[in-house]
Nucleic acid binder design. Structure first.
Length: 643
RNA sequence: GCCGCCGUAGCUCAGGGGUAGAGCACUCCCUUGGUAAGGGAGAGGCCGGUGGUUCAAAUCCACCCGGCGGCACCA
């Protein structure tokens, strides 16, 4: 390397030499004025940096522009949007304290401690000011401060929260401070070179409360959510996506399709209507069949159980506040919030030999939990629900193979509903837990080894395990992008100990079984909610509560229609008759809106020829088929997966 | 549970101190029409609940209940 020279390698492989040092800005300018104008940041050896970064050594550099599809660019824009938001708030409401403002999926937020809470009208004002700040084209400059100086500075300008955040950083670490206009914020960066580069493809979305440092013991801050994109077009597409998601909302569709309802007199409990219950039973029947094949034994346990059992299991101590109780015969009973202690009771009644293990005990267990009011959400998070629960009693040696068998079963089931990219999270020991650390080491080790053996990709979810053991969570996403834990597998060495479960081993001695708690749907209610949103109410034929409507064009076809209906029913299809004195247009519209997958339209012609005009949901045209053929097609399609 | 917003007919929503409104659905009548709304008439309300202010409250205020969006929680 020559003295005073620096070689920069560009993504196309070309090398450029400069007098050193050179800033990224000048590098971009040297390549071309167009690029310099579009430049947002640098990627030095693959790492995102400020555009103004001074290059001192030979390296490879990429100029990052908004044209890039990479998510990193979006993160950069969104992070800047958060800073512009904070600047706008400080200008409009100088007494407001700022805290943190990260980029998140689809947007960003910033948490403020305002003197007066913001109103929706304030949000409009703030957004308007943000656009002005962008137009001002303020330079965004990075400085490095010494920590104590930074703490002092933010204390002096009345930013207590900021000072606290900085005070928690080690003293010897330099503090990155970004300055734009009169606003400065602690930040690791990188950031855009100026506010103008943010562009105008952003929008403030909603106000919400959020606890300082995510702890409900702390004061509540006010969070402003926004979204930001590379272009107006992307922003519009996102807003359209949200509207589309709203149309899929299971609460809306549940009402429209007459599946279920919720009401004040039974908060968090579902009133299943005939159609919703038909769907429910279809799912239950499907899963029961799968479980039978997988050698599960189905049981049923009591709803009301003496608190003594919950005390013994440890649930009373941890969740007593969230259990519904009732008094009778001078005893306190709890509506069961889960099934495991009851299953151990059955185990203890006589499953005594190692020859019985693994023993897979299943129950569609109706459970009640007094969930915090703010947690309730449609039928996804309720107070009365049914788990497709099972407990596998096994030996330590069997954990691995049982985990593999279960994961295969779960993925097989999920595949039948089109869920192929399931998020898997590994949640390890929580801060408050039952059982010795040695047991946790064993349980976590066994589960980790088992999940590794399945080759299913997973992410760590530290500290989020159940109080009695680590768990795998199988997470599905609803229409709005919210994650819901559905399937789960939990390794438990604690409960068998507490409830004194034993079996006699090959050696003739007493041993403690391990319990694997597992569910595939998680809760019937939640899974149905997810399915409604996944299919936008247009269920595949095998799931649709109403599979076929036979609709007449004229009452001259009534008798034939009745005959068709009886054939459909005789073949086990869920069908109904529409003989109303309405035009066929009207009937087609109504049953289409009700999302009935198939309509058998019959008029005079069909009655004479013994045919069916088949109209499928979502299709403009219909097919005229012989009754037998129409029936055969439908029966083929209505087959339950795996049966 | 916490912060903010909301609650009017079965549903979707307008109104906003002085006799409660629309569309759809519902009931009845006419219409027998060939693939996404044929026409007419009728019925339907403790304006979430309780208290207060007022000559007068669906409307303003307070509290409660419920819903929505987040946060916290999720055995």
């Amino acid at each position: 390397m020559e003295n005073g020279k620096i070689n920069i390698k560009l993504p196309d492989g070309s090398l450029r030499a400069f007098e050193k040092p050179i800033s990224g800005e000048d590098l971009a300018l040297d390549i071309g004025p167009g690029l310099a104008k579009a430049a947002l940041a640098l990627r030095i050896n693959g790492e995102m940096k400020d555009l103004r970064t001074i290059l001192e050594e030979d390296t490879s550099v990429e100029i990052v522009t908004a044209r890039e599809e990479d998510d990193e660019v979006l993160e950069l824009l969104r992070h800047d949007a958060a800073h512009v938001l904070a600047e706008a708030v400080k200008e409009l409401y100088p007494e407001t304290q700022v805290t943190i403002g990260p980029a998140i999926a689809d947007g960003f937020y910033y948490d403020f401690a305002p003197v007066e809470p913001f109103t929706p009208e304030d949000l409009e004002k703030i957004e308007k000011r943000m656009h002005e700040i962008v137009d001002r084209d303020e330079q965004i400059l990075r400085e490095e401060w010494q920590r104590d100086k930074a703490v002092e500075f933010f204390k002096n300008i009345g930013e207590k929260y900021k000072a606290q955040i900085i005070a928690d950083i080690p003293a010897d670490q330099p503090i990155g401070i970004y300055r734009q206009g009169d606003f400065q914020d602690l930040c690791r960066g990188p950031h855009l070179p100026s506010t103008k580069k943010l562009g105008h493809a952003f929008k403030l979305m909603k106000l919400a409360g959020a606890y300082w440092r995510g702890d409900s013991k702390n004061e509540m801050l006010q969070r402003v959510y926004g979204t930001a994109w590379r272009s107006e077009k992307e922003l519009k597409a996102y807003l359209n996506r949200l509207e589309e998601a709203e149309r899929r909302d299971h609460r809306k569709l549940g009402k429209e399709m007459d599946l279920f309802h919720l009401q004040e007199e039974a908060v968090g409990m579902v009133f299943w209507h005939e159609k919703g219950w038909t769907l429910y039973r279809t799912l239950e029947r499907y899963l029961r069949h799968k479980l039978e094949i997988a050698d599960y034994k189905e049981v049923k346990t009591p709803q009301l159980v003496d608190r003594k059992l919950w005390e013994a299991s440890g649930h009373w101590e941890k969740f007593g506040e969230h259990m519904y109780t009732t008094e009778s015969e001078e005893r306190t009973f709890a509506l069961k919030p889960m099934n495991c202690p009851c299953h151990v009771q059955i185990f203890n009644q006589g499953i005594t030999s190692y020859r019985d293990l693994p023993y897979r005990m299943a129950e569609f267990g109706s459970c009640h939990r007094y969930e915090p009011s703010g947690a309730l959400h449609g039928i996804m998070r309720v107070r009365g629900f049914t788990q497709d629960d099972a407990h596998i009693f096994c030996t330590e040696e069997q954990i691995m193979s049982e985990t593999e068998i279960f994961c295969a079963l779960l993925l097989d089931v999920y595949k039948d509903f089109g869920f192929t990219d399931v998020k898997v999270k590994f949640s390890d020991r929580p801060p408050v837990r039952a059982g010795e650390d040695a047991i946790w080491d064993k349980a976590e080790g066994a589960l980790r080894e088992a999940i590794e053996a399945t080759n299913i990709p997973y992410t760590m979810n530290p500290g989020e395990g159940a109080f009695y053991g680590p768990k795998l969570e199988f997470v599905l996403t609803d229409a709005i992008g919210r994650d819901w834990q559905c399937g789960t597998l939990q390794v438990d060495f604690v409960l068998p100990e507490r409830l004194n479960a034993n079996y006699i081993g090959e050696d003739g001695a007493k041993h403690r079984p391990v319990m694997l708690h597992r569910a595939i749907f998680g809760s019937m209610e939640r899974f149905i909610g997810i399915l409604i949103e996944e299919y936008a109410g247009r269920f595949p034929l095998w799931l649709a509560p109403e599979q076929v409507v036979v609709a007449t064009i004229t009452d001259e076809a009534d008798n034939y229609a009745r005959e068709v209906l009886s054939v459909l029913k005789a073949n086990g299809l869920r069908a109904s008759l529409d003989l109303r004195n309405e035009k066929i247009n009207y009937k087609v519209r109504e049953h289409s809106l009700a999302k009935v997958p198939a309509m058998f339209v019959v008029g005079k012609r069909e009655a004479e020829e013994r045919t069916i005009s088949v109209r499928r949901l979502g299709e403009k045209h219909q097919k005229v088929l012989a009754l037998d053929d129409a029936m055969a097609d439908l029966l083929e399609e209505a087959k339950v997966p795996g049966q």
